[in-house]
């Protein structure tokens, strides 16, 4: 187990991405603007925002899918684009939103696990590989006899997602970027996936948890970064940002979230005839 020190792992500084299209670059869409936040080692940070808030853009930039228009991202103090690809992905890994899409249908799932081991460890004896695979399958609560040797379409979304987490455990990166990892999972299995993300954290792996679901963010995160229309509107410890926010957008967002134990009170507005609504595009 690695010691959890408070060192800064990922430093995002004034990150900006503007999408342009057309040969003359006439159409501009702001993906994100001036985004800055920090992820410490072993910390779970949630990037919370509605669709179009820019959170997926930030995640894609951190995963080096494309380059920023401005700003920089530092991993362990070094710009992420200066790392050779293999060295970077040894430190930063991803858990996907759609577990069914993340597996190649033509191969058994074992291949994904073996490649994960081969990624960092090169040649490893078969017996040792099998032992490590059994170990991580146990950690994510998967029965080896139920999943090994199977094809992806024979397993459930929850099982596939756990396999992806097991894969991350085998690679042991410093940071895992999880973009809406539970949105395609049955409600009754979601809790398991979230709990296994805690298992990653217990091994010293930091997690960037991207979601629009306030409840999940409140459950899992140490720190919350709330985004709206490409900018960071509030960030800080999760207990503070999600339970006593200061920014008006965050306050409205949280009041709009339906709660199990409370009912929205529309009595004031139901008396009148006109509702305040959002405007058409």
């Amino acid at each position: 187990m690695r010691a959890q020190d408070a060192a800064v792992l990922l430093d995002v500084r004034q990150l900006t991405k503007i999408y342009t299209s057309g040969y003359l670059k006439t159409t501009r869409v702001v993906g994100c603007q001036g985004v800055s936040f920090v992820v410490k080692r072993g910390e779970i940070v949630t990037l919370l925002g509605e669709s179009g808030s820019g959170k997926t853009t930030v995640a894609n930039l951190i995963l080096r899918i494309f380059r920023p228009t401005a700003g920089e991202i530092l991993l362990d103090g070094t710009d992420i684009f200066s790392y050779p690809p293999r060295a970077y992905y040894a430190k930063v890994q991803q858990v996907f939103q759609d577990p069914y899409a993340a597996f190649n249908y033509f191969y058994r799932i074992d291949r994904v696990l073996h490649r994960a081991l081969a990624f960092k460890n090169g040649r490893m004896a078969l017996t040792e590989r099998q032992a490590r695979i059994m170990e991580v399958l146990d950690v994510v609560g998967l029965n080896a006899s139920e999943v090994l040797g199977r094809y992806p379409h024979q397993l459930s979304g929850g099982q596939l997602q756990r396999l992806l987490i097991a894969r991350a455990l085998l690679i042991e990166p410093d940071l895992v970027v999880a973009d809406e990892p539970t949105s395609m999972i049955d409600a009754s299995s979601r809790a398991g996936i979230l709990n296994h993300l805690f298992d990653l954290r217990d091994r010293g792996i930091a997690i960037l948890f991207i979601t629009h679901d306030v409840g999940q963010a409140a459950y899992i995160a140490d720190k919350a970064v709330v985004m709206h229309k490409g900018k960071v509107v509030e960030q800080g410890p999760a207990s503070q940002v999600l339970f006593s926010p200061t920014h008006p957008y965050v306050q409205k967002l949280l009041s709009d979230v339906p709660k199990l134990r409370e009912r929205w009170d529309f009595s004031q507005e139901l008396g009148t005839n006109v509702l305040l609504g959002d405007s058409p595009r």
Binding site: A191, L194, G215, Y219, L242, L254, V257
Partner: peptide, 13 residues
């Protein structure tokens, strides 16, 4: 008990 709902008055779950 498996849904992560947002409960501001209950605090962290």
């Amino acid at each position: 008990s498996s849904i992560a709902s947002y409960e501001p008055h209950a605090g962290r779950r």
